Lab assay of single mutants.
Amino acid sequence: KKSYVLIKVKNPKTKETHTIVVPEENLEEVLKALASQPNVKVVDIERFP
């Protein structure tokens, strides 16, 4: 059974918020990819039960 993680990201320029759902096993690479985006800020990470 896969567990999923909900990542909320915000664009500081446009103030838009997006929610991305990723499998927990991919969380680290997704966070690394997001960290390299200049106008993306991770605001929240939630685990799915």
Results as ranks from 00 to 15, higher is better:
residue 17 T to M: 11
residue 33 A to M: 13
residue 11 N to Y: 12
residue 41 K to Q: 13
residue 36 S to H: 07
residue 6 L to A: 14
residue 25 E to I: 05
residue 20 I to P: 00
residue 46 E to A: 13
residue 11 N to L: 06
residue 30 V to I: 08
residue 43 V to L: 07
residue 44 D to S: 13
residue 36 S to Y: 06
residue 16 E to S: 08
residue 39 N to M: 06
residue 42 V to D: 01
residue 13 K to I: 15
residue 27 L to R: 01
residue 24 E to D: 05
residue 20 I to F: 11
residue 44 D to H: 15
residue 33 A to K: 10
residue 32 K to S: 07
residue 16 E to T: 09
residue 42 V to G: 01
residue 42 V to C: 05
residue 7 I to S: 00
residue 31 L to H: 00
residue 43 V to G: 02
residue 9 V to L: 12
residue 23 P to W: 14
residue 38 P to D: 10
residue 40 V to E: 03
residue 49 P to Y: 05
residue 12 P to G: 14
residue 40 V to W: 14
residue 7 I to T: 00
residue 16 E to A: 09
residue 39 N to S: 06
residue 22 V to D: 00
residue 46 E to G: 08
residue 49 P to E: 13
residue 20 I to H: 02
residue 47 R to I: 12
residue 37 Q to V: 09
residue 45 I to K: 01
residue 49 P to C: 07
residue 17 T to R: 06
residue 43 V to P: 01
residue 39 N to G: 10
residue 12 P to V: 15
residue 31 L to M: 04
residue 11 N to M: 04
residue 10 K to T: 14
residue 45 I to P: 01
residue 40 V to C: 10
residue 45 I to Y: 05
residue 14 T to E: 03
residue 36 S to K: 13
residue 43 V to H: 03
residue 23 P to D: 11
residue 44 D to N: 15
residue 16 E to I: 09
residue 43 V to M: 09
residue 15 K to H: 12
residue 32 K to F: 06
residue 41 K to D: 10
residue 28 E to P: 06
residue 20 I to D: 00
residue 48 F to K: 05
residue 11 N to E: 02
residue 2 K to F: 06
residue 22 V to M: 02
residue 43 V to Q: 03
residue 29 E to G: 06
residue 23 P to M: 13
residue 44 D to P: 02
residue 2 K to L: 09
residue 18 H to D: 04
residue 44 D to W: 15
residue 38 P to Q: 09
residue 32 K to H: 08
residue 35 A to H: 11
residue 35 A to P: 01
residue 13 K to H: 13
residue 36 S to N: 11
residue 42 V to T: 02
residue 37 Q to H: 12
residue 10 K to I: 15
residue 14 T to N: 05
residue 31 L to D: 00
residue 41 K to G: 03
residue 16 E to M: 11
residue 47 R to C: 11
residue 39 N to P: 02
residue 10 K to F: 15
residue 39 N to C: 07
residue 44 D to C: 12
residue 45 I to C: 11
residue 38 P to H: 10
residue 24 E to R: 06
residue 10 K to Y: 15
residue 27 L to M: 05
residue 48 F to S: 05
residue 12 P to R: 15
residue 27 L to K: 02
residue 44 D to V: 12
residue 17 T to W: 12
residue 13 K to T: 10
residue 16 E to F: 07
residue 33 A to H: 12
residue 14 T to C: 07
residue 8 K to V: 14
residue 21 V to L: 12
residue 30 V to R: 02
residue 5 V to K: 01
residue 6 L to S: 13
residue 28 E to R: 07
residue 12 P to E: 15
residue 28 E to I: 08
residue 29 E to R: 12
residue 28 E to G: 07
residue 26 N to T: 08
residue 22 V to I: 09
residue 40 V to Q: 05
residue 17 T to C: 13
residue 2 K to W: 03
residue 14 T to L: 03
residue 24 E to T: 08
residue 40 V to Y: 11
residue 27 L to N: 00
residue 12 P to N: 15
residue 8 K to Q: 07
residue 41 K to A: 08
residue 46 E to D: 07
residue 7 I to F: 01
residue 16 E to D: 07
residue 23 P to S: 11
residue 32 K to W: 06
residue 11 N to W: 10
residue 27 L to V: 05
residue 35 A to T: 08
residue 4 Y to G: 03
residue 34 L to Y: 03
residue 23 P to R: 10
residue 22 V to G: 00
residue 43 V to C: 05
residue 22 V to P: 00
residue 22 V to A: 03
residue 13 K to M: 13
residue 14 T to M: 03
residue 15 K to W: 06
residue 12 P to F: 15
residue 11 N to G: 04
residue 36 S to W: 06
residue 49 P to M: 06
residue 38 P to G: 12
residue 25 E to G: 06
residue 36 S to T: 09
residue 32 K to P: 00
residue 11 N to P: 01
residue 10 K to P: 00
residue 30 V to E: 03
residue 49 P to T: 07
residue 3 S to Y: 14
residue 48 F to L: 12
residue 20 I to A: 01
residue 17 T to E: 10
residue 25 E to R: 05
residue 5 V to Y: 15
residue 38 P to F: 03
residue 5 V to R: 01
residue 17 T to Y: 12
residue 4 Y to R: 04
residue 39 N to W: 06
residue 18 H to A: 06
residue 45 I to M: 06
residue 47 R to M: 07
residue 21 V to Y: 09
residue 14 T to R: 04
residue 44 D to M: 13
residue 27 L to C: 03
residue 23 P to I: 08
residue 2 K to M: 08
